[in-house]
Amino acid sequence: MNGWVLRATALGALVVVLRAALGFAMVYWPTQGSWMRPLCLVVLVAAIVFWGVLDGRKDRQVHPDPEHGSDLTIRWLKTAIGAGLGSGAISWLLDFLPKFDLGDNGLLFELTASASFIVLLVFIPGLIGVGIGRIIADRRITKSANPPVAQQPEAAATPV
Rank of each mutant, 00 (worst) to 15 (best):
I81M: 13
A113H: 08
I128C: 02
F96Q: 13
L107T: 00
M1Q: 08
L85Y: 10
V17F: 05
S91K: 00
G82Q: 05
T112Y: 08
L93A: 14
I90D: 00
I128H: 04
T73K: 14
D101R: 06
I81S: 09
A10R: 11
L120D: 11
L72I: 03
G133F: 09
A157C: 04
G82F: 05
T79F: 06
S91W: 03
I118K: 07
T31K: 15
L11Q: 12
A46E: 02
A47V: 01
S144M: 12
K78Q: 11
H68F: 11
P66R: 07
V42D: 08
D101W: 09
D95I: 01
N2K: 15
G131E: 06
L85P: 08
T142G: 00
W51Q: 03
Y28E: 15
L94G: 07
D104V: 03
R140D: 14
A46F: 09
F109V: 14
Q61G: 07
A155V: 12
V42F: 11
V42T: 10
K78V: 05
A8C: 02
D95H: 06
Q151N: 08
R139S: 12
A155E: 13
A155H: 11
G86A: 06
L14Q: 09
A157P: 06
L121E: 08
D104Q: 12
V160Y: 07
R60G: 02
P30M: 06
I48E: 03
S70A: 12
V49Q: 02
K58F: 10
R37D: 08
V45I: 12
P147V: 04
G84E: 03
D65Y: 04
A8R: 01
G12V: 02
K78F: 13
D55E: 14
G56K: 02
W35P: 05
F50L: 15
T31N: 15
G88I: 03
I124W: 06
L97E: 12
M1L: 10
L54F: 14
R60P: 04
G84P: 02
D104S: 14
I90V: 13
Q151T: 13
Q61L: 10
V43N: 00
A137R: 01
P38I: 02
I124C: 05
H68I: 11
A20L: 04
A83T: 01
G126P: 03
G126R: 03
L85Q: 08
Q152P: 00
S91H: 02
S116M: 14
D138S: 11
A47G: 07
L94Y: 07
I118C: 01
A20I: 03
A13D: 04
F117G: 12
E67F: 13
R19S: 15
G133S: 08
I135L: 13
I90T: 08
L97R: 11
I118V: 12
I135Y: 09
P98A: 07
R37L: 12
S116V: 13
V49A: 04
K58Q: 14
W92Y: 13
A21M: 07
V119N: 04
W92E: 08
V42M: 11
G88D: 04
I90Y: 01
A13L: 15
T79C: 11
S116Y: 08
